[in-house]
Write a protein that binds this DNA or RNA. Structure first.
Length: 1058
RNA sequence: GGGCCCGUAGCUUAGCUUGGUGGAGCGCACGGCUGAUAACCGUGAGGUCCUGCGUUCGAAUCGCAGCGGGCCCA
């Protein structure tokens, strides 16, 4: 049986109860089981990094995933969706280092790599546990018991397998490259790990002495003085114009400089030269070839050995001097120029950011400290043209915030550039939501992609499975643990982490011994293999064949360069195709001011805080409805409160009929909607139609992942159609005590609509839906599915759809609003009945709507009659006032105009209009008895309302309210006032709804008393008074006695329990 | 500096694809209802549609340039 619920919406209580129910009933597992025969849907969860706490962005991400998967499940999809955890990498190493108080790699080595790895593992697992609980609080249904974890051996094997594929397909490369390097972490870091922030650096102009030309210098600019010791070349743009010019120094000396012609002024100003004279101009391609001397050759023995020349490079821009300092060991572009021209890749800087022995004088010095020394040395040698500082965007290590440097080091690469063509083709075969996420954003990113540096010189990561012979240098890539054990001849199992795998050696054919290269993978490579690792591939084949590739993934737009990309790259290597079929790209959560949330700004909002205050359903409904998924979400607490209020209304809607249904023992299993068909009113048919329209709209929204539209549609239906309209309309029907078919029809319709809405909200507000479902459905139908989430998604029932009725009702609502507006103008409150409402319909459809919904209109406007005029015709009781137009009258009647105007004003408008229509003119009698002829242009008209009426506009046309009172109306009005106050007093005494009372009312005013007395019985019945006395001499008594002022009439009332 | 997205009332937003008098919700003010009641409903005020230029008879909508915000890159 349906149970009455009395409490107001209490999210905490509901969610706690439902969580327990899900757990006890094993609802998640049963739901997946229930869909085992459905069409497969493979979803891959983008693994959050195990930081230990979820934030609003990760919460939004999981809520989107959960809502979509619940929707798919109800649409009979057989879903596979293991949650994932990204557990390796520098962030955890940095956190653990912090916990242990370590400063550098040396501390780790002395602590012992094994100890360190164990700490990292423990840390990651602890954080995972905490985050799992947080995600579960959001109501997210995933296989939490069996997530995929990047630190597991089988996961590591998936990465190994992929690398082996790369090697077999000649997509693996090793070699010296310039990489982003963190001198603190002493490792290469990926482009995606570089964080840009403002930084102030030196800005220097340096003169390189041209060989064989007296007193001639080529001028370069740099923000990294420490790279001058590594200078090998200068680059110029082949088609820029350069000039050789004589510059006069402040000390009177002259020197001959070379720079881009357009930048001479800049060089002169920066170098504080007093004057200059252009000697010669030439194209960059002619400058190329020039030889110059390193300014620090005397301090760095190796520099004296190098030849230094000028080369062409297209990337040179017309800034500073137009001549670019090239240190192939310290810059990406520099490196490329170096390789192209076979220059030495001179890199005299070690992993910790200090110069090596090759740096001569600077050996052992930290590069940041070296800046000042280099500047000093340049100054001493008169090679420093200018010195200053510049604030610019500079890359930093994303974890430890140390400014990065560029170093040429030996690294491992995936040859993405070889795969690019095919990758771009694959992008087109994927469905992107929104479309531009793929066609514009991701495509641009892939087009510009370079080879992917996948090696890191760290500890906590997937070890790169490459073994190298110490003797002959032969490389061997290992694809699985079994392969490693076999080749190494080891019998007992080992863990695939450092330092355990580092100890494994493989005998080489040459008689030597192969040892593992020390690097670990970039963490982005970990998550890149998630789609097959989670299917236990390559260990098993069946699952992979059945499920791969993923049908759907969804992540934030930062993942364009991240997971969308890394997965595509790795999958191209492994399988030559994209690992996903459709991608929804969602936005970022920002604070209320539109700024991103960050710890340093102190504007971070915890999703758990929101859940504690409002519940998970509110948080879910808010983040889903607040903006389109791909737009950024400006978090706004007021909006959360609004959503919470909306859900509270939904709750009230839901609980409103329950006491009546319970009282009447209404059993929806016994009374079908079909059986009450004949008792259905228009409003019943209307709400049934609306419910179907909403299902349709939600389906349409979901087909394009427009989650915001789906949720808004549902909440709007609950608020506008159910709460503000349908419930209001049927209230009197539910109060009927008899077993009335009219009431039963309302119950059946409500029940039908509630069942539908319960299912509609379940993907988005899973807790509330479950609570409603258990009471509404499981309580009456023991055979029903155990959980709402096992239900089938509602199918649109076309027989209920009636678009014409929906339009008519919308017209009717507009009329009711207009009537209420007009009432306000007429000063007549809704409690007082009015004799009639007059509608002047604009169209045939409006007239039909009024006719069809006449009883609804009478009811909601509290009027005794609804009068329709003809279509397009105004109300025939309106007066028509004539407004003379002095501008037309003046020129014709000159000085008599003053008499014509007041006379014309007095003419009755309809008569004047009629005369004009019939004769084209009108004989106007003036005050002095004379007559003049007026013509149509001289008069304008204004409709006037009869006494006691007011009008307002509606969609249907003008609506008039006749607020004139008759004794009958007045009697009813005053009686309603009395009833309302007695009800109020009942409430004050906290009486039960059906408890009977004794009541007495004293009214001094004889006329009002007489009016109210005519409805004495009605009043007594409404307030459930068995004994009811009323009069001017009545003694008022009871448990509660109050004085009232009713529209200026003094009354005294008293009530008591019987 | 580049790519993509966003900019509409105090706040959150719809409308933009396909040009034709900008529509909601919250908040505010006033009023109503009182058998959902610490709930609910109505009415009203409130807009340089980021700025400028262009296309057009007509631009929130299309184009260009700029400004501000976000993500990503250099």
């Amino acid at each position: 049986m349906i149970k009455e619920i009395t409490a107001k919406y209490n999210a905490e209580q509901i969610e706690k109860k439902v969580t327990q129910f899900w757990e006890d009933s094993d609802a998640y597992r049963k739901t997946r089981e229930h869909r085992k025969t459905g069409k497969r849907l493979f979803f891959v969860d983008g693994p959050p990094y195990t930081t230990g706490h979820i934030h609003l962005g990760t919460a939004w991400n999981k809520i989107i995933k959960d809502s979509i998967l619940r929707y798919y499940s109800m649409n009979n999809r057989n879903i596979l969706e293991r949650p994932g955890w990204d557990m390796h990498g520098l962030p955890i190493e940095v956190r653990v280092e912090g916990l242990l108080g370590f400063k550098s790699k040396k501390d780790i080595e002395s602590f012992g790599v094994e100890n360190f790895i164990e700490k990292c593992k423990e840390f990651a697992l602890t954080q995972k546990q905490a985050m799992t609980e947080q995600f579960q609080k959001l109501g997210v249904w995933m296989q939490w018991e069996e997530p995929y974890m990047t630190l597991k051996d089988d996961y590591i094997e998936a990465a190994w397998w992929t690398l082996k594929q790369a090697q077999e397909k000649d997509l693996l490369d090793v070699g010296k490259r310039v990489v982003n390097w963190c001198p603190r972490c002493e490792t290469a870091i990926a482009d995606s790990e570089v964080e840009y922030a403002d930084r102030t650096d030196p800005s220097i102009y340096v003169k390189f002495k041209v060989k064989g030309e007296e007193n001639t210098f080529i001028v370069i600019w740099t923000t990294t003085p420490w790279t001058i010791p590594s200078n090998i070349a200068v680059a110029v743009h082949p088609s820029f114009e350069y000039a050789k010019f004589r510059a006069i120094r402040q000390d009177g000396k002259e020197e001959i400089l070379i720079a881009a012609t357009t930048l001479i002024e800049n060089v002169i100003r920066k170098g504080r030269y007093t004057n200059y004279e252009i000697l010669e101009t030439m194209l960059g391609e002619d400058v190329a070839g020039l030889e110059y001397e390193s300014p620090l050759a005397d301090l760095i023995p190796r520099q004296a050995e190098f030849k230094h020349n000028v080369y062409e490079a297209e990337y040179v821009t017309a800034e500073n001097t137009g001549c670019v300092h090239i240190a192939p060991g310290h810059g990406m572009d520099d490196f490329n120029v170096g390789v192209k021209n076979s220059l030495p890749i001179f890199c005299p800087v070690g992993p910790n950011g200090s110069y090596t022995e090759e740096a001569g004088k600077y050996a052992g010095m930290n590069i940041r400290d070296a800046n000042a020394v280099v500047i000093e040395d340049l100054l001493e040698r008169d090679r420093l043209l200018a010195e200053g500082t510049v604030t610019h965007r500079y890359g930093h290590c994303w974890r430890c915030k140390t400014p990065i440097i560029y170093l040429a080091t030996e690294q491992w690469f995936l040859k993405i550039t070889d795969l690019k063509e095919k990758m771009l083709e694959e992008i087109d075969s994927v469905d992107w939501y929104p479309d531009w996420a793929g066609s514009a954003r991701f495509r641009t990113w892939v087009e510009g992609a370079r080879d992917w540096c996948i090696s890191r010189q760290r500890y906590w990561g997937i070890p790169i499975p490459v073994w190298k012979c110490r003797k002959c240098g032969k490389l061997e890539v290992i694809g699985t643990k079994a392969e490693l054990l076999e080749k190494a001849g080891i019998e007992n199992d080992i863990e695939l982490h450092r330092p355990y795998v580092d100890k494994v050696t493989i005998p080489c054919e040459c008689g030597g011994e192969k040892k593992r290269v020390e690097d670990v993978f970039d963490v982005w490579f970990d998550s890149a293999v998630a789609s097959w690792a989670t299917l236990k591939y390559p260990q098993t084949q069946d699952q992979f064949d059945e499920w791969w590739p993923a049908d759907f993934i969804t992540e934030g737009h930062d993942q364009t360069r991240g997971w969308f990309y890394s997965q595509l790259g790795a999958s191209m290597v492994g399988f030559g195709r994209a690992p996903y079929k459709s991608v929804l790209m969602h936005g970022f959560t920002l604070d209320a001011g539109g700024k991103k949330m960050s710890k340093s700004l102190g504007n971070v909002i915890s999703p758990l805080e929101i859940i504690d205050r409002f519940g998970a359903d509110t948080l879910r409904a808010y983040v889903l409805s607040a903006s389109a998924p791909w737009d950024d979400l400006k978090f706004n607490l007021e909006e959360i409160e609004t959503v919470h209020r909306s859900i509270n209304i939904l709750w009230n809607v839901f609980r409103f009929p329950l006491p009546y249904m319970a009282l009447d023992k209404f059993d929806p299993m016994k009374v079908s909607l079909d059986s009450v068909k004949d008792a259905l009113r228009e409003e019943d048919r209307w709400i049934l139609s609306r419910a179907q329209s909403v299902v349709k709209a939600v389906d349409e929204a979901m087909s394009g992942y427009l989650l915001h539209k789906a949720v808004r549609e549902i909440l709007e239906f609950a608020l506008e159609d159910l709460s503000r309209w349908y419930i209001q309309l049927i209230r009197p029907r539910t109060w009927t005590e008899a077993d009335d078919p009219d009431k039963l029809a309302a119950y059946c319709v409500l029940y039908e609509v509630y069942v539908t809405i319960t299912k509609l909200i379940s993907p988005f507000m899973p807790y509330l839906a479950e609570e409603m479902y258990q009471n509404l459905i499981r309580n009456v139908d023991p055979k029903a599915n155990e959980s709402v989430h096992m239900s089938d998604w509602p199918k649109v029932n076309e027989t209920y759809l009636d678009p014409e009725l929906e339009a008519a009702m919308s017209t009717a609502r507009s009329i009711v609003e207009a009537a209420s507006n007009a009432r306000q103008k007429a000063g007549r409150k809704l409690r007082w009945p009015i004799s009639r409402i007059v509608v002047s319909p604009e169209s045939e459809a409006a007239a039909k709507a009024v006719d069809r919904l006449r009883s609804v209109l009478m009811d909601q406007t509290n009027s005794k009659a609804i009068v329709l005029t003809g279509v397009g015709q105004s109300w025939d009781e309106l007066g028509l006032e004539v407004i003379p137009d002095p501008g037309k009258i003046g020129p014709v009647f000159k000085k008599d105009a003053g008499k014509v105007i007041p006379a014309l004003q007095k003419v009755e408008g309809f008569a004047l209009k009629k005369a004009f229509a019939e004769n084209g003119e009108f004989e106007l009698l003036l005050a002095d008895g004379t007559t003049v002829t007026v013509t149509p242009g001289m008069a304008n008209y204004k409709e006037t309302l009869p006494e006691g009426t007011a009008s307002a506009e509606s969609d249907a046309g003008l609506v008039y309210v006749d607020a004139n009172l008759t004794p009958e109306l007045e009697a009813e009005g005053y009686s309603r006032e009395v009833i309302r106050r007695l009800q109020d007093m009942r409430k004050e005494l906290d009486l039960i709804v059906d408890e009977n009372i004794r009541a007495s009312v004293w009214i001094e005013d004889k006329r009002v008393l007489a009016l109210v007395e005519t409805l004495k019985d009605l009043i007594a019945e409404e307030v459930r008074a068995d004994v009811f006395n009323i009069g001017s001499g009545t003694e008022v008594s009871g448990a509660l006695v109050k004085d009232w002022d009713v529209e200026g009439i003094a009354m005294k009332m008293g009530i008591a329990k019987k």
